[in-house]
Amino acid sequence: MTSTLSETGARLAHGAPRAVAIVLSASLLILFVLPIVALVTYVPPGTSAPSVPPPPRAGALAPLWPGPGAPTWLVEIAKAAGDPGAETALSFTLFASGIALAVSFVLGVPLGYLLARHRFPGRSLVEAAVALPVVVPHLVAGLALLLLFQPQSPIGSLAIQLGVPVFGTIWGVALVMIYVSAPYTVLASELSFRAVDAGAVEAARTLGASPAQAFQHVTLPLALRGILAGGILTWARAVSEIGGFLILAYSVYPSGPYQGPVTSTLSVYLYNLYQIEGIVGVASTASAFLLLAFGIFLAVRLLERWGRLPWAPRGLLP
């Protein structure tokens, strides 16, 4: 009798909370995934399955192009992806986000290193400043950048003189992207540098390594994986931005390194499409974007797991 009671007690103590946790976790995951499934499998009313799919096009989204016998929703996505406007917006967004990511790395990784390894006056202020773009609503960030860079302001006129005007240009897009996404690079690098065993670095020094050698041989290889993971987050945040673009660069005109047709970032393009055509017009394009982003994310994650990132020689990652 007593043993049965205590067994029940044990089951309650260990079994019940776990079951509750599983149910709650599953609910959240379903909330994450179901809308995506609804979007991707959406078929606009009145669409019938084509007997013969359109011929494949060469383009940025060509890998998504379905072969014969593909389901209607996938054919719809492929068709939307083949739309020249969407393709331009996509390649422009990838280009601009590449610039933003490069700048975030060049400026953000050293800041992360300083925060991780050095004590200096005003450290907390610097940390608060780094977190600022994360907590400021992005529309507000756009407005703030607008005020700072308007042509009448000293900084705005200086930017124009230097040949990097920000309104309606790739520079503006990159600026917004850096503003909202670079904090992730800084925070990820700070955590990664902090996780490096200081003892290993000091041991390297006393074994004969100069500060630069110790950084190159020990600190950087050990922090690299975390910094790159931060890079993925930075990139993801940059391409999913919209608020700042709506204010600073709704339409993008050729300027600087971008000399293509007038376009916009993919997020603004989708927003436009939704304004004009409603969900019927935007669903397939949004799905194409989603599948591509998810594909890139998954590929990077898998490569990272196998330790075979193209930019990290085998054996470099711990």
């Binding site: 003892g199 290993a200 670095v201 000091e202 041991a203 054996g315 711990p318």
Partner: peptide, 11 residues
């Protein structure tokens, strides 16, 4: 100097 924890390079 061999620090506490030995300071071996994990990579």
């Amino acid at each position: 100097y061999v620090p506490p924890g030995l300071g071996l390079f994990p990579h």
